[in-house]
Amino acid sequence: MSNKDKILSSLLHAKLCDDCLSITSNVVPRQTVYSICRSLSESSVIARVRSNCDQCGKSKTTNQLLDENELITDEENHSLNIDSSEPSWYWEGNVQSKVVHHLVINGFTIRSVADTATRTAGKDIVAIKDSTELWISVKGFPEKSKHIQARHWFSGAIFDLILYHGENPNVQLGIALPDGFSTYGNLAPRIRWLKDSMPFQIFWVNETGAVRVE
């Protein structure tokens, strides 16, 4: 998917400023988002107006689709092929998006966000506040072999934190998980000993998108 298509996909259900659009679409640097959105605006595909961004809530220049039924791709001029099926709320990308929004409204600056759909290598979320970085490993909940696979994913998130701590013991650490699943809920208390020796936070995201931090 081209950067232009990523941006259009991200604007299907939200009105976003360039900063939040860069994070949501995983198109960097921000200047690339600005250039593409200016071109889309000149082509009357989107409107660029000053209003409150749906993600960060700030009054900024935002981007909004004018007609979702007339989306076009770049060079080939084919209709944008976006899967109409909505991923589950507990999909990793949705969990990641909600945590990013939570961090932004709580004063964090987002440094980077991994593309979970393409399994981009690196930290899932890197944010900074008051000169201290926060590195977060994000996991969703599996659709198949749920109990067994969820245990593997939980273990993977904890192992990510161990690697992060080894890379830089001065950063804050966190994992982000969908809330309400017994597998994760039962495993979390069993690693309290690790939180005592290597402090980290758990960002629980529920079905409504609310985030609670443990």
Score class of each variant (00 low, 15 high):
F154I: 00
H102P: 00
R151T: 04
D130A: 14
R151W: 04
A114M: 11
G140E: 08
W89G: 02
K139Y: 06
G140M: 13
P142G: 01
P142N: 10
F108K: 04
E133A: 09
F154P: 06
H147E: 15
D115L: 10
K144D: 06
L103Y: 03
V126A: 01
I128S: 05
T109E: 13
V95H: 07
V100I: 08
V126H: 03
T120N: 14
Y90Q: 11
V113I: 14
F141G: 01
S88H: 13
V138S: 05
S145T: 05
K146N: 14
I148D: 01
L134F: 00
E133Y: 13
N106P: 03
E86K: 14
T109F: 11
A121T: 01
L103M: 05
K129L: 05
G122I: 06
S155Q: 05
D124G: 05
D130H: 15
K98W: 08
F154H: 05
E92C: 12
E92R: 09
W135M: 00
R151H: 03
G156R: 07
V104R: 06
E133L: 12
P87E: 12
T109D: 13
N106M: 10
I158Y: 04
I148F: 02
E92L: 06
A127K: 07
A121E: 07
W153E: 13
V138W: 06
L161P: 02
W153Q: 13
A117P: 01
L103I: 04
K98M: 08
S88D: 14
V138F: 03
D83C: 14
K129D: 00
A157E: 02
V138A: 08
R151V: 01
F154R: 00
E143D: 08
E143N: 12
A117K: 11
P142C: 09
V113T: 14
S85D: 09
Q149F: 03
I148A: 07
G140Y: 11
L134Y: 00
V100M: 10
Y90E: 10
A157N: 04
V113S: 13
V126D: 03
G122P: 10
L161H: 02
R119H: 10
I136Y: 02
E143T: 11
K98I: 01
T132S: 02
T116L: 15
T132Q: 04
H152S: 09
W91N: 14
K146Q: 15
W89Y: 09
D130G: 09
A114N: 10
V100P: 03
R111A: 08
D130P: 07
A157R: 07
T109G: 12
E92Y: 02
G107P: 05
P87F: 10
K146M: 15
A127F: 04
P87G: 11
D130Q: 15
T120A: 15
S84V: 10
R111V: 15
V99F: 01
W91P: 04
D83L: 14
T132H: 06
A114Y: 11
F141K: 03
K139C: 08
I158V: 15
I105T: 13
V138R: 02
Q96G: 09
T132D: 03
F154S: 02
E86H: 09
N94A: 07
Q96M: 13
S137E: 03
P87W: 08
I148N: 03
K98N: 08
E86Y: 14
S84K: 07
S145P: 00
H101K: 13
F159N: 07
I105H: 06
R111M: 11
D115T: 02
R119C: 00
S112Q: 12
